[in-house]
């Protein structure tokens, strides 16, 4: 990394940390940009952000669930609660893209904004770029930028029971919103397809008996103790429409975060998850062939998790290794 580039990265990182909206938006554009020079700049920025960032600040929360479960309205209600508590909130809203055209309809940002002049809320929509039910490779670096500028970063994505693994391996706290009256969530949980979330929510409790039954079924299907240990998975009822239960949900999210911090888990988990995402990003950029070049998935993950080096500097080094390696044809 040359000096002017490092200085530019430092400047941008400082602007992001100060909450400068233009800087934040610009950084997200940069992280989205696949051109090689942009990739290099993005890497410099991320390395800088991670160095500057106390590992245990900000909370990365994932909200997932089937379409129509009311995730967006619930997110909007949560944002109102967080804003009342004085917390700055950023949202990454992930929508599916068309497999044919690559195009996408991105929506719901208006619902989530309390008002146009509230600088404490920032919403970025993302298409999943063909990663069905999952998250595109840009989500992770974007979440790092947003964590630098906001107290809470919320990632909202449609989950259909199969690919929530992505969001569960990215966020500090994962919340699954079940559709009342649909047995799918229960079935997925029982079958072990659904990665166990930290919090289960049945939204739309104004639906009455149906929602209560779903609530009971989910409670019964859960072993209640999260595989992470020390966390009893709560099953909550909310009504985004009337606001009922939203404060309680925000409280539980806060409790989970505090638990992670008190057990010194946050940094280790982020390291583990970030290694997963780094691997995903490298795979995205260089393909399976590139991963093999770096010793294969298993060895690479172990290497990433074990080292105490800044992940992005490591990433830069790995990219360097791949880019400068003699090609397979031995030219």
């Amino acid at each position: 990394m040359n000096l002017p580039e490092a200085n530019a990265a430092a400047e941008l990182a400082a602007a992001i940390a100060s909450g400068d909206r233009a800087a934040i938006a610009g950084a997200l554009n940069l992280l989205d940009d696949r051109r090689p020079d942009a990739r290099a700049k993005a890497t410099a920025l991320l390395a800088h952000l991670q160095r500057a960032q106390d590992h245990a600040t900000g909370q990365l929360i994932g909200i997932t669930g089937p379409p129509g479960a009311g995730k967006s309205t619930l997110s909007a209600a949560l944002i109102r609660v967080w804003r009342q508590r004085g917390l700055r909130v950023a949202v990454l809203a992930v929508d599916p893209s068309s497999p044919i055209s690559g195009g996408a309809l991105l929506g719901d940002r208006v619902r989530m904004q309390t008002s146009a002049d509230d600088d404490g809320v920032f919403v970025r929509s993302l298409s999943n770029r063909g990663q069905f039910g999952g998250l595109s490779a840009e989500v992770w670096p974007m979440s790092i930028v947003l964590l630098a500028g906001f107290d809470i970063v919320l990632i909202e994505t449609v989950g259909v029971g199969q690919r929530e693994v992505d969001i569960a391996r990215l966020c500090d706290t994962t919340c699954y919103v079940a559709q009342p009256g649909s047995g799918d969530s229960v079935q997925f949980l029982k079958a072990g397809i659904l990665e166990v979330p930290h919090i289960l929510v049945v939204n739309k409790d104004d639906m009455g008996a149906v929602a209560r039954r779903t609530l009971a079924e989910l409670g019964a299907a859960l072993t209640r103790t999260h595989p992470d240990g020390h966390w009893q998975v709560p099953v909550l009822a909310t009504s985004a429409a009337s606001g009922t239960g939203v404060e309680a949900l925000a409280d539980v999210m806060q409790q989970h975060y505090e638990l992670l911090r008190s057990q010194q888990q946050l940094a280790a988990r982020r390291r583990r998850y970030q290694s997963y995402w780094l691997h995903k990003r490298l795979q995205d950029e260089f393909g399976s062939f590139g991963i093999e070049r770096l010793g294969g998935e298993k060895a690479l993950l172990a290497e990433l998790e074990a080292q105490d080096m800044n992940l992005f500097e490591q990433y830069a080094a790995l990219r360097q290794r791949l880019c400068s390696a003699p090609s397979a044809t031995g030219k």
Binding site: S97, S98, S101, G102, G103, A104, L105, L106, G107, D108, R109, V110, A116, D117, S125, S127
Partner: peptide
């Protein structure tokens, strides 16, 4: 969307801000 753009559309009655 069909032409391949990523579209942000939020419906009617938005303020210039």
């Amino acid at each position: 969307r069909d032409a391949g753009f990523e579209i942000v559309y939020e419906g009617i009655r938005l303020t210039p801000a």
